[in-house]
């Protein structure tokens, strides 16, 4: 179900679950497009030599996933802000899920705040944050 205007949103509403494509081919495509082709994002062995647990999904790619999730739920949403706290690395080729819930609504302005959490298969939070979006009134 998608949302088209603010009056359709309920406090506590859960956004449709979203599983981002964090496979190496997709991350390499993103890194190339972003001009971030360093080995820490595109090569597990290179990343491990830098002391990382594996190649990293770039932070801006994770933020892009969060934005994509919001637009899957509300295609007309204007995303004003995605504020993220990276608590642990997001590793390429590992499986992650993104969950989102509505935590504040201003019917007059059309503003909605959404909690966003990126978790791994062990249900551990890797990234959390909030988004402020505007929906048609």
């Amino acid at each position: 179900m998608t949302i088209s205007k603010i009056s359709e949103v309920e406090f506590g509403e859960t956004l449709p679950a979203f599983q981002p494509d964090t496979t190496m081919p997709n991350v390499r495509r993103f890194a190339k497009a972003a001009g971030w082709e360093g080995g820490r994002f595109t090569d597990h062995d290179h990343a491990r030599k830098e002391g990382l647990p594996g190649a990293l999904v770039p932070g801006i790619m994770s933020q892009g996933f969060l934005s994509a999730m919001i637009h899957h739920w509300a295609p007309a949403a204007q995303i004003k802000n995605v504020d993220t706290v990276f608590r642990a690395p997001v590793i390429v080729d590992q499986v992650y899920s993104i969950s989102g819930v509505v935590t504040d609504i201003d019917l007059d302005s059309g503003r909605v705040e959404i909690d966003l959490t990126v978790t791994n298969e062990a249900n551990e939070t890797r990234v959390f944050g909030t988004a402020k979006v505007l929906l048609p009134i």
């Binding site: 706290v85 819930v101 935590t103 504040d104 909690d115 959490t117 939070t125 959390f128 944050g129 909030t130």
Partner: peptide
């Protein structure tokens, strides 16, 4: 002795 807390930084936690 042990206590518990969410350490919540966002609402849903």
């Amino acid at each position: 002795l042990g206590i518990g807390g969410s350490d919540a930084h966002i609402v849903s936690h």
